[in-house]
Structures are given as structure tokens and as C-alpha cells.
């Protein structure tokens, strides 16, 4: 069970990958409205995007990326049916990975 949604489309030799991750993305600066205490930082730090085991892009993030992050990028040289693998790691050391397919 994975919470990463991946959609990859090939058009004119360019593959556009769109993905949605499920994550609270807490900056560590926000206060809990009930207790008034700071909510500890909890955000994705690194997203690695691979196609056929080749790293296409690595994203480094702070807590400034919105909750349930959306990410889109493009690369050349993909082919229909190629696997796209997205892996994120957050500041708590949690990690999640999912694989999609270029259509």
C-alpha cells in the first residue's frame, strides 16, 4: 500500500511525470491551536525520481512545500511502459516508494 500517486505521460519525446504524495509537511514553526505548543517539524527532505534505475531528478525540500506535496517534472528519452520509481525520505527517517509506468 502506497500513498504516492504517479502519472507519467509520453508526448513528443518528452515524458511528463506528475506525482502526489501524502505527507503532513510540518515546518516545525506552526503552533497547535489547542495546546499552543509547537508542532514538531515533519517534512519530506528528499525525493528521488528514477526511470529504469537511472536517477532523473533529486528534489531536496524544506517544510515550505505544501502539505500532501505535488511534484511534476519532465525528462527526455522515456518510452511507453518504462517504470518510474519515486522514493521520498523525511526528516524522521521515514521513507516510502512507489512505481508507476509511462503511458
Amino acid at each position: 500500500m502506497s500513498d504516492i500517486k504517479i502519472r507519467a505521460k509520453l508526448k513528443d519525446g518528452e515524458t511528463e511525470v506528475k506525482c502526489l504524495m501524502s505527507h503532513p509537511m510540518e515546518t516545525g514553526l506552526r503552533k497547535d491551536s489547542k495546546t499552543g505548543e509547537l508542532v514538531p517539524a515533519h517534512f519530506i527532505q528528499e525525493v528521488v525520481c528514477k526511470s529504469k534505475d537511472q536517477v532523473v531528478m533529486t528534489a531536496n525540500w524544506s517544510g515550505g512545500v505544501s502539505k500532501n506535496p505535488y511534484l511534476a517534472f519532465k525528462f527526455s528519452g522515456g518510452a511507453a511502459g518504462d517504470p518510474i520509481e519515486i522514493t521520498w525520505t523525511d526528516n524522521m527517517g521515514e521513507t516510502q516508494s512507489a512505481t508507476g509506468e509511462i503511458s
Binding site: 532523473v56 531528478m57 528534489a59 531536496n60 525540500w61 524544506s62 512545500v65 505535488y70 525528462f75
Partner: peptide
């Protein structure tokens, strides 16, 4: 976002095949 407390939001390292295009949502 230059007025955020920590302005740097994201950096994307592009691999050889990646095209200079990124899209995301920020605070």
C-alpha cells in the same frame, strides 16, 4: 519565497535526461 522564515523551499537536482521544468506547490 523571499519573505518566508526560511526562504529556500526546494531545490531540484536535474539528471542528464531531465528537462528544465519543475512544478510543485509551496507555502
Amino acid at each position: 519565497a523571499d519573505q518566508n522564515q526560511t526562504p529556500l523551499i526546494a531545490s531540484f537536482d536535474l539528471g542528464e535526461s531531465a528537462l528544465p521544468f519543475v512544478s510543485t506547490r509551496i507555502k
